[in-house]
Simulated scan of single mutants.
Amino acid sequence: MAGVNLQPIIIVEDSDDDFEATERALKRDGPIANPLVRFDNGQDALDYMFNRPPYEDRAANPIPAIVLLDLNLPGVDGRQVLTELKNSEATQKIPVVIMTTSDDPRDVNSSYAKGANSYLRKPVALEDLFRTIQLFKEYWLSVAILPKVGE
């Protein structure tokens, strides 16, 4: 098992139902050590990531271990969030996993071209979502060695 990383997991998801299902899936086999921080829009996620008000206190709002990002968000969408995160030296090493309903090859290719670390299609069926999140959790939180950003 890779080193323990207790930085938060940022989930950028505008759908309450999808967030709740994702949270349930992450905790299905017991609690996870990493705190979950949710944003329902891209602007708030970016403000958090770049220490802009009201998230200036980095001790209270730590850099995440990983970002789970929906593409289709109100206002600043996931594509813009991905671009800003990967274009900034301060955040470019943070793994960003796209999790969205789109399997459009243009979205897939564009996300990888912008620096996404993985692209998952969000399944419609709840059991399929649980399986997808379980595989995400096993790989990204147990197997992969994540960078310590800011060190």
Rank of each mutant, 00 (worst) to 15 (best):
L120S: 13
P105V: 09
N61R: 08
S102L: 07
L126R: 06
I94A: 10
Q80M: 14
N41V: 07
N87K: 15
L68K: 01
Q92W: 06
F50N: 05
D44C: 01
E56D: 03
P53Y: 07
Y112R: 12
S118F: 10
N87R: 15
K27C: 05
V81M: 11
A59F: 08
E84I: 14
D77K: 08
R28K: 07
I145V: 04
M1E: 14
A65D: 07
D104R: 09
M49P: 09
R24M: 03
T132C: 14
F130I: 02
R52M: 03
L120T: 02
V124F: 12
D103H: 09
E127H: 12
D57I: 05
I98S: 12
P62W: 00
L6H: 02
A125S: 14
P54M: 03
T100A: 11
V4T: 02
L129W: 11
K27D: 01
N51E: 14
E84S: 10
K148P: 09
G78I: 04
S110Y: 13
G78K: 14
L69R: 10
T83D: 13
A45K: 08
E138G: 00
D29E: 11
F136A: 03
A33E: 01
D104S: 10
P147V: 06
P31D: 12
V81K: 02
N117Q: 07
